[in-house]
Design a binder for these strands. Structure first.
Length: 847
RNA sequence: GGGCGCUUAGCUCAGCUGGUCAGAGCAGCUGGUUUACAACCAGCCGGUCGGGGGUUCGAGUCCCUCAGCGCCCACCA
């Protein structure tokens, strides 16, 4: 035991010891009902390390440590989410490269020392290698942080979402969905990011307020006089207009239903149709339907069985079109083609300016454009509005599962409960199946090939699939059964699916990946369905939702019983992620400065679902608590000497039994709170009692416990001190794993984290008699008097006269000796009367 | 447009099924240093619990309503 205990630097040796002892190693011999399994979120390693990274993970660790001390075998894995766009984008910027599948593989490739201004095109294998190189470094940084934070994960269970296991499970689960008809591919309008050049799922898109303008455009009638005026924010899409649509009940347009108009500039005849989604209040009450300007267009196109005139390509530019050709019939093909030639090849933005000019010249623009701001769909990581392009994509049929998914959501134990609303709102609002294919390079490939027909076109309706035991495969280099390499890409041969899976298509399988589904059924049965899914609120609609989907499709059950949703970390000014402060907090720096226990304390104060400001003050309070734990432990244990702590039965003095009885209630409360994932409340109760223990109880009994005497009274105090300390350390262990471990090891050979969670049975039975309370009350009055007189707390007191009800006076009398010594009191009188404590300091002339 | 959450001392937050619930920590102020702890200890100051209405013997605690803040969802011409 050190002379002057310090929490600085205690982490490293303790972590080493834990590692040597294999303290957190999962024991797979345990039965399912003895196991507590956690579906840990794999952090996106390409993201920066920030305080949000330590916040939620600390909560999970507090629960894990509690369950472990309760005797459960804790299955606590850690993974890294390293696939996906975030990594690709980061690799592109970090190395100054971009992936170009047409570039041949260069075995000796090394990225330039400094990233070139123009990104260097490199092959897909080289690109993937760089992705892996960068994420490996990221993963080491994360692992160092988690370790230092004291997460009690079993590092032998580490995995990566792009690793072999993840690829195998992703491909296996996909093939099974395909076989069951739950996954399908189709050519369909798809939300598309023109910069990333990939499909985007409903879950990945967000609304942004974006400037635009209403343009009023007149469509001349074909079978009548005059024109119909519509308003649009996307006049550049006029060439892909396929109809005008108004509400069926709108009296203004009802007579026009079934008639036709011609598009300005292009002279294409389009019908006037009715649909309930048309809003009579908006614009002129009648809208132009284009293929496609927004998701409503898709609905109209589908519901009304309108023709397709798609023009915007995957690069976000207008593609070729021939007016006069079938499907593009025009009153004046030559003029139409001339008009269109001026926007072909242009971006949406450039085209809009051109078309507006053309419309104005043609006299079809009514008035001038009216600027507005309106919500526009963006990919959440994108910079330009999403377009809708037609492309072949893989989907999982989630729409038809909606009712079952809602039912399952109702069976999850949500913490906090109101988080179910987010899930429910999302499921109820689903309007497309889950799109899982992405036109990217660094990810899990779809494990399918397609036969190439004699005409050179791939036969998507009949994919060729590998046997499961071959997985994982890459269809771009591996061969389908029965084909040889020379047949790749030629008529009569085959072609591999070029796409990779969306990140969520893999991470939705985390229980299967960590649990060893199929590969290790013995393990899987011991940990699945899992107990706890901890995660952030922003990925309820993605990770949580998709995990439920996959578990339902594969097993027909929920993947876990409890979902604990953490809140946001706000910057010290309570604004999210403001960069104005300039001072960017790095978690590792804080852990080194404050100590891991202090940072954990701050995190553990944040309840599930509650946003929490980054608060250096709270962390310092936690640090102080950790220091106090060491000092109090040293005092209690040090003075007990080498003699063993007397058993709890030796605690016979009323105030000692009182302490232990009250502590038993704290154990009950903390246990109940942790059982319902309210770690913050458990900490609060324990902390508050711990300070009372230090400030009042220890002060009151230290003379008796450590004085000259060695009688029953002294042994009673020592028994209570030793017992209470042991219980308090264990109650604090899930929150302050380092300080409690340090103190515990002064008197134990084993780790506190493998010791048992304290129970009421270890402590005194019976109701408290108010001895500690009443005595503390008098001691407080004495301290107040000394403070007011500005004298030392050790200043002698001539006399104390206590008035109060008889029961309380009796309680005080029971601890008379302790009180006299702790307060340096010469004479103590107890008398009936209204509550009052009259204190007369020694040498004071006043009464 | 719909939904969810929040609004309690200067700051960060507790207040679980309505009756010692008006609390804690930080900050501030006043004191105290040498036998656990000065990165400490003791004490003090400080709030008509966002506004308004209602239910009740009694309401931060339940209901209605308004306001502000935050978040989620939305078919956005």
């Amino acid at each position: 035991m050190p002379e002057r205990p310090s929490i600085d630097g205690i982490e490293a040796p303790i972590i080493e010891q834990w590692d040597r002892d294999g303290l957190y190693r999962f024991d797979r011999s345990k039965r399912r009902d003895e196991i507590f399994s956690i579906d840990t979120p794999p952090p996106t390693v390409s993201g920066a390390l920030h305080m949000g990274s330590v916040f939620g993970y600390t909560h999970t660790d507090c629960i894990a440590r509690y369950q472990r001390m309760r005797g459960r075998e804790v299955f606590y894995p850690m993974g890294w989410d390293d696939n996906g766009l975030a990594t690709e984008r980061r690799v592109e910027n970090f190395f100054g490269v971009r992936c170009d599948p047409a570039v041949p593989y260069d075995a000796d490739f090394e990225p330039p020392a400094t990233p070139p201004k123009d990104k260097l095109p490199i092959s897909r294998p080289n690109f993937v290698a760089l992705c892996q190189r960068l994420t490996e470094e990221d993963e080491l940084a994360f692992k160092a942080l988690w370790t230092r934070l004291g997460l009690s994960v079993d590092w032998s269970l580490e995995y990566a979402t792009v690793g072999v296991r993840s690829r195998r499970q992703s491909q296996r689960a996909f093939l099974r969905m395909l076989a069951r008809g739950e996954a399908y591919s189709t050519e369909a309008p798809t939300l598309w990011d023109v910069d990333f050049r990939t499909a985007v799922s409903q879950a990945e898109m967000e609304d942004r307020d974006h400037p635009g303008a209403y343009h009023r455009v007149a469509f001349p009638r074909v079978d009548g006089d005059g024109a119909i005026e519509i308003e649009t924010t996307r006049p550049e899409l006029l060439a892909s207009c396929v109809a005008l649509v108004a509400h069926p009940d709108d009296a203004r347009y009802r007579p026009l239903m079934g008639t036709s108009v011609r598009t300005p500039l292009y002279g294409v005849r389009v019908p006037v149709v009715a649909h309930g989604l048309a809003d009579p209040e908006k614009g002129t009450g009648i809208a132009m339907v284009c293929t496609f300007g927004d998701t409503t267009d898709v609905v109209w196109w589908r519901d009304l069985d309108l023709p397709l005139r798609a023009l915007i390509g995957r690069d976000g530019r207008f593609g070729p079109a021939t007016f006069g050709a079938p499907g593009w019939e025009s009153a004046d093909p030559a003029a139409a083609n001339e008009a269109y030639a001026q926007i072909a090849g242009k971006t949406v933005r450039q085209a809009q300016a051109v078309v507006v000019d053309q419309l104005r010249t043609a006299g079809a623009l009514v008035g001038e454009p009216t600027p507005i701001r309106h919500p526009v769909k963006f990919y959440e990581k994108g910079e330009r509005p999403l377009e809708i392009v037609t492309s072949r994509q893989w989907f999982v049929a989630t729409l038809r599962m909606r009712d079952r998914l809602l039912e399952l959501g109702g069976q999850i134990d949500w913490r906090p409960p109101h988080m179910e609303h987010r899930y429910r709102a999302w499921v109820e609002g689903l309007n497309t199946d889950w799109s899982i294919s992405r036109q990217r390079f660094f990810g899990v490939p779809f494990p399918v090939w397609y036969p190439v027909r004699a005409d050179g076109v791939a036969d998507y309706a009949h994919p060729i699939v590998p046997d499961e035991d071959r997985l994982p495969i890459d269809p771009s280099s591996d061969l389908p059964p029965g084909y040889d390499a020379a047949q790749r890409g030629i008529p009569g041969g085959f072609v591999g699916d070029p796409d990779v899976m969306d990140t969520w298509a893999t991470s939705s399988l985390t229980p299967q990946i960590v649990g060893g589904w199929v590969d290790d059924e013995d393990l899987f049965e011991r940990v699945f369905p899992m107990d706890l899914r901890p995660q952030g609120p922003e990925i309820i609609r993605t990770w949580l939702f998709s995990t439920v989907v996959r578990s339902e499709l594969e097993f027909g059950v929920l993947p876990w019983r409890h979902a604990m949703i953490n809140g946001w970390v706000l910057d010290p000014d309570r604004k999210k992620l403001s960069k104005s402060s300039g001072h960017v907090t790095t978690p590792m720096g804080l852990l080194e400065e404050i100590g891991s226990d202090g940072v954990r304390y701050w995190a553990a104060k944040g309840r599930p679902g509650t946003d929490t400001a980054e608060d250096m003050g709270q962390m310092k309070v936690g640090r102080r608590l950790a220091v106090k734990v060491l000092n109090a432990s040293r005092f209690v244990l040090g003075r007990l000497g080498d003699a063993a702590v007397p058993g709890v039965d030796a605690a016979t003095a009323p105030i000692d039994r009182d302490l232990l009885t009250e502590l038993a209630s704290v154990v009950d409360e903390a246990t109940a709170a942790l059982d319902r994932f309210d770690y913050a409340r458990a900490l609060e109760h324990t902390e508050s009692f711990f300070w009372r223990f230090c400030d009042d109880y220890v002060e009151l009994v230290k003379a008796r416990a450590y004085g000259e005497r060695d009688d029953d009274d002294a042994r009673s105090a020592r028994a209570a001190l030793g017992t209470a300390l042991s219980v308090l350390l264990r109650l604090l262990a899930p929150f302050l794993p380092f300080a409690t471990e340090e103190a515990w090891r002064w008197s134990h050979a084993d780790s506190i984290h493998s010791s048992g969670w304290p129970t009421r049975e270890e402590l005194a039975e019976g109701a408290p008699h108010g001895v500690l309370d009443a005595t503390s009350w008098v001691l407080g009055a004495v301290r107040r008097e000394k403070s007011a007189a500005k004298v030392s707390m050790k200043a002698p007191v001539a006399s104390v006269v206590v008035h109060g009800p008889a029961a309380r006076l009796a309680a005080i009398d029971a601890a008379r000796g302790d009180l006299l010594e702790a307060g340096a009191i010469d004479r103590l009188e107890l008398a009936d009367g209204d509550d009052a404590v009259d204190v007369e300091l020694a040498g004071s002339s006043a009464g």
